[in-house]
Design a protein around this nucleic acid. Structure first.
Lengths: 194, 194, 194, 194
DNA sequence: AATGAATGAGGATTCATTCAT
DNA sequence: GATGAATGAATCCTCATTCAT
């Protein structure tokens, strides 16, 4: 067993465990002990690496957001330069199997509430929103000109809305259907007389 | 002064206090003492009337949902029989000044997370979703025929999305603008080629 | 069992228990649980009444200092107007059986260290020192004129010195001997050529 | 670079760090990590060298007491055989700039409380007291005959009293003034009619 | 009806100490 | 020699809930 360089390993394990536990509990009322136990270590060690429960939560948020960002970036690269294709990439990237999992959706919802209390959490979500908006605008301007702005906002709201509603749904999340749904809406917006 | 008939008064005060405190804290991490203090009574009395903290939360949810329902019903009555007018009434009812207040938005968000844990809370939100869906469908079927269903879902998602995003916004909520925004979307959906 | 007006009773019990426990442990490393248990209640109740461990310690200090003040005041009243008698009263009041008990001496010593960390504790000790100084000066000025000031300081230092040394002694404190010892010193100071 | 012979260097660094940290904190509530960090090493190494926190504290006490002893011995050598000069040397040695520093005074006070709990600490302080007493007696017997004993005790108490009061003072310690103060007292005691 | 009194259960956090490398 | 890794045991404090009055 290696006894050195554990920090990144432990931290990653804790982040994963945090998301799992939040998803499982459906709330942020998760103890550090629970998280640590699932990550296979003592609560003391979790504190040793993160300093506080809040930092653990923030790391989990960062993780989810960075995964999200990576998925979208990947999809954009694959999409090439065509604006319509890029829009679809952004939307589909939001409903990837990795992102649109029950636990992640639940964590997402809980992070929204966390952001109401913890400034750092709010900042993270704001960054996410801004990046999404910017991505959407770049692709929408060539297609919708002056209506790019409202369409971008509507898309963002709808993506969040679909997420939050999924949090209450009973079956397993169907990312493909969700993405199709949002893209259908997008196409009608683009097709509407300006 | 008679001491009888205090029950509904006390309960109402507690419900109001609960929503205020949740809005203020931005989370469900609110103690019964805080709620009771704001309602001008002891925590013991709050328990006497509601039995448990969970029941207090549920009563607050019911209150918010019933206010919401009342606003929408009122708007529908005023709207008369025209389907387009009725749709607009439903949307505007969702963004009334009473509904679309910071505290209420925050409480709403938190109740979504509560619904993940507490079955009774989930049931309440499901009822709200169903009623909204049913209202939308009644008005949409004459206007959009087979596309009524997806449009209704899109509208519902967008309303929730706008709410959740408002929870992170910094300024005071602008219900009028939010309603206009959603109705613009609705009209384009209705105008799109079937 | 009375169920009302417990606060002063509980608080007094906690203060007594705190002094006992500090004396017993010989340090401030005393848990709230220990204190509460000795006072016959739960740790939660101790927190309910005092809010924090620090407040409990401060209340104990205040108690000790007020007892001390009362003893000295009582002795002064009994002493009448004669300055020499008043000086003796002050010194003897410092070594009363109530004050010069093992536990109290130990608590006293520990409060000195507490005062290095906790401003409120420092303030309390400063008040004690000032009052002692003022009492001594009033009685010394008629007897020693310009040398009143240094004699007062020497007396105060010696009283504290006797206390701190008692904290290390093995037998039971002998307040009478200690007082005689300090008064002997005082008399020689007064008798010395100015 | 040879790694041998590090032990005394490391230990000395730890002892210095301990005194600094106790002085800084004004209490014994100092963690081994703090001490080790200030000494430029890991907490594990501190344990390696001393075995336990208690041993670290004791080493620090021994260090302070040995410094104290050395100062006094040095002053005695310089004083020569004259009893009065030797007394003055003892007193001045107690208020050397090295001894009468804020941190050391604070550490001293804290070691008094430590001595209430830890027998080994008590033994160390007892040794110090006995040596001081013995030194004083040797010089006092030729000057004060039968009154040597009480004067020695009074001097010792006063030195401790001045120390403890300095722990609460606000300005920087003034060892010269303190020594003058105690010597003035001594001279009056010696001058008093037997 | 109303409340102060009271507590058990739990939770974040700290820390001395041990161990494998 | 030196340290990062790791943890068990504590400790302060909070809080929902119950009870006697």
């Amino acid at each position: 067993m290696p006894k050195v360089g554990m920090e990144p390993i432990r931290k990653a394990a804790l982040v994963r465990a945090t998301i799992t536990e939040i998803g499982r509990a459906g709330s942020l009322d998760v103890t550090v002990s629970q998280i640590a136990r699932r990550a296979g270590m003592s609560a003391a060690l979790a504190h040793h690496y993160f300093g506080s429960k809040e930092q653990i939560f923030l790391a989990a948020m960062r993780h989810i957001l960075s995964i999200y960002g990576a998925e979208v970036r990947g999809a954009l690269v694959a999409a090439g330069p065509d604006p319509r294709a890029r829009l679809e990439a952004i939307v589909r990237g939001s409903f990837t199997r990795t992102n649109f999992r029950r636990e992640v959706v639940s964590a997402w919802l809980n992070f929204y509430t966390l952001a109401q209390t913890v400034p750092a959490a709010r900042r993270l979500l704001t960054v996410y929103q801004r990046r999404l908006h910017s991505n959407l605008m770049h692709a929408l301007v060539p297609l919708a000109a002056s209506r790019a702005q409202p369409i971008a906002e509507a898309l963002a709201a709808m993506i969040d809305g679909v997420y939050i509603r999924e949090a209450l749904a009973s079956g397993a999340p169907d990312g493909m259907a969700a993405a199709d749904f949002v893209i259908g809406f997008l196409d009608r917006e683009l097709g509407a007389a300006p």
